[in-house]
Design a protein around this nucleic acid. Structure first.
Lengths: 224, 224
DNA sequence: ATAATTTTTTAGACTAATCTAAATTTTTAT
DNA sequence: ATAAAAATTTAGATTAGTCTAAAAAATTAT
């Protein structure tokens, strides 16, 4: 039996992605205002879109009560994230882009609709589990390959960690990490933590490095 | 000095591409109706878009007099075609799509805006000169690597040709060619042409094949 | 508990892309 | 050359996504 599946517009997809990410962060219903901020738009605009997404059964929405994704809305959002991260991997590993250059391009590529394309791309890339920023790439069923990572800020002194990801994805932060030689996969050991500003002295591939708290708060590590 | 370059919408890009292709075919001003047919839309809709494209200086347009592309409009159109064909090449050669599966996906990918992406993709693919259907891929300056090809329909008897392209790009035609073993790059020699229906008996990699005129009209060959 | 503040929704308007129906211009045919 | 036919444009609507301003609901603070 043939069932018509209405295609979501780029805009709808971006709203679902935003709601997904906000839900992840706060782990509860998300507010109209928070969506408006994330989407760089106005609350009134968001309200209109929420009505539409609700009609399409992509979200649970009650006036004034915030929203959450339905199972099908979540599926759509995770698929967008899957595509985004696969394309980022492609751009960095195959086309030699720098990790700070790919976000905007992947924001466009993530809306290409062919599922067959996504699956073939995944295979071509060797079924990568993490994107160039260390974020997990969900598989075709929406499952994430989870690793328990923590902030470098909270690392235990003199214990070895592997740098596995970043919190801040801005170009300027990523470029700073490049200039400081802080690269995903490297081993790091915090030797000292200043009480005053929580800045760190650490050992990074043999060299001593200084890392401010502002930076340490945005680096993810996992136990070696 | 900073100059604001207004981004073209997908729709505008598609109109420019359609006008480019129609101009190529007829080699003269193109009509509102022909654009409407190509875009599967109504003449009234086309008129509105022509006014808009004219304001943006992408086309030359005088009411009732047909349109042609300006230099800048042509540049935009050729760039879309460049991206379309590079992506088709990528899909077939890297992701293992069949040549009859890639058109629709490339129609989406051709609108990804990053020039750096196009150039890096081109390099990654080894600067291909032809797409999987044998159509030339313009270079970054919009120059086409031209080869003088002709229709198989008009091939001289007992002369060797190389199959270089197709006129009809439909899946059904491409699938038919696959099933008949007619593949780009192969050598073909027409042994007989029936006067009644212009069908051909030809030699294709050692085997004898029958090719109807309907098919021969849609195959491009070049002298060996 | 009620007043002040904040958040959210509604109302009304705008732009881009589309449509149908009617009007106009061009082309074709007698 | 003029009438008929075809092509094109205009006029007036529609939908998606957006906005501002005003109204309504929820939250916070006294």
């Amino acid at each position: 039996m043939y069932k018509f599946i209405p295609m979501n517009s780029f805009t709808e997809e971006n709203y679902l992605k935003a709601i997904y990410k906000l839900t992840e962060q706060t782990d509860s219903e998300v507010s109209t205002n928070s969506i408006a901020k994330k989407m760089s738009t106005k609350a009134a605009t968001v309200t209109d879109m929420l009505k539409k997404l609700s009609l399409k059964k992509s979200i649970h929405y009650q006036k004034y009560q915030g929203v959450s994704l339905t199972t099908s809305g979540k599926k759509i959002a995770v698929n967008i994230i899957r595509k985004h991260r696969l394309w980022e991997f492609f751009l960095v590993k195959k086309l030699n882009f720098k990790w700070d250059q790919v976000h905007g391009i992947a924001e466009e590529l993530e809306h290409i609709h062919s599922n067959e394309l996504t699956e073939k791309l995944d295979r071509f890339l060797g079924f990568p589990k993490f994107d160039p920023h260390g974020d997990p790439i969900p598989d075709g069923d929406g499952k994430f390959h989870n690793t328990k990572s923590q902030l470098l800020e909270e690392a235990v002194l003199n214990k070895s960690y592997i740098i596995t990801g970043v919190v801040d994805h801005s170009s300027s932060f990523l470029q700073y990490l490049d200039s400081a030689g802080i690269v995903l996969g490297k081993e790091i050991k915090v030797k000292e933590r200043a009480l005053y500003d929580k800045s760190l002295q650490a050992q990074l591939s043999g060299k001593k490095v200084f890392i401010s708290n502002e930076v340490a708060k945005n680096i993810l590590v996992s136990k070696k």
